[in-house]
Simulated scan of single mutants.
Amino acid sequence: MAVSEQIKAKALVQQQNEINDFAIYTLLARNTADVHNAKLLRKIAAEEKNHYHFCQSITGKDCTPSRYLVMFYLLLIKLLGSTFAAKYMESREIDAEAFYLELEAQYPQARRIYEQETRHENRLISMLHDSKLDYAGAIVLGMNDALVELTGTLSGVALAFNKTATVGVTGLIMGIAASLSMAGSAYLESKESNDTNIKPRIYALNTGGAYVVTTLFLVMPFFLFHSMWLALAVMFAFAALAIWLYSFYISVAKEAPFRSRFVSMIMLTFGVAVISFAIGFVARRFIGIDI
Rank of each mutant, 00 (worst) to 15 (best):
A2V: 12
E5R: 07
Q6G: 09
K8W: 01
A9K: 13
L12W: 06
Q14E: 14
Q14K: 06
Q16S: 06
N17K: 14
E18C: 02
E18Y: 02
I19G: 00
A23P: 02
I24S: 03
Y25D: 03
T26H: 07
R30I: 08
N31E: 11
A33C: 05
D34I: 04
D34S: 10
H36L: 02
N37F: 00
A38V: 02
I44N: 01
E48C: 00
K49P: 04
H51K: 02
F54I: 01
G60I: 02
K61G: 01
D62F: 13
D62W: 10
C63S: 11
S66F: 06
F72E: 15
L74F: 12
L76M: 13
I77L: 08
L79W: 14
M89G: 14
R92H: 11
D95P: 02
D95R: 09
A96V: 11
A96H: 15
A96C: 13
F99H: 01
E104G: 04
E104M: 10
E104D: 10
A105G: 11
Q106I: 08
Y107M: 04
I113K: 00
E115T: 09
T118M: 06
T118F: 00
R119W: 09
R119A: 11
R123W: 11
R123L: 13
L124R: 08
M127S: 13
H129K: 12
K132A: 08
D134N: 12
Y135C: 05
A138F: 11
L147Y: 06
L147Q: 10
G152D: 07
G156N: 06
N162M: 14
T166Q: 09
G168M: 02
T170W: 00
G171T: 02
I173G: 06
I173T: 06
I173D: 00
A177R: 01
A177E: 01
A178D: 05
S179Y: 04
S179R: 03
M182T: 10
S185K: 13
L188V: 04
E189F: 11
E192W: 08
I198N: 11
A204H: 06
A204C: 10
G209W: 13
V212N: 08
T214V: 09
L218P: 07
M220Q: 11
M220K: 10
P221W: 08
P221K: 08
F222N: 05
F223Y: 12
F225S: 04
H226E: 14
A231R: 05
L232H: 09
A233L: 14
V234D: 03
A237S: 14
A239M: 05
L241H: 12
L245A: 15
Y249A: 09
S251P: 01
A256M: 12
A256I: 10
R259E: 09
F262Y: 13
F262D: 01
S264V: 08
I266M: 14
L268M: 13
T269A: 12
T269F: 04
F270S: 07
A273N: 01
V274M: 12
V274K: 03
I275G: 07
I275N: 05
F277C: 12
F277I: 06
F281P: 06
F281Y: 15
A283V: 15
I287V: 14
I291Y: 15
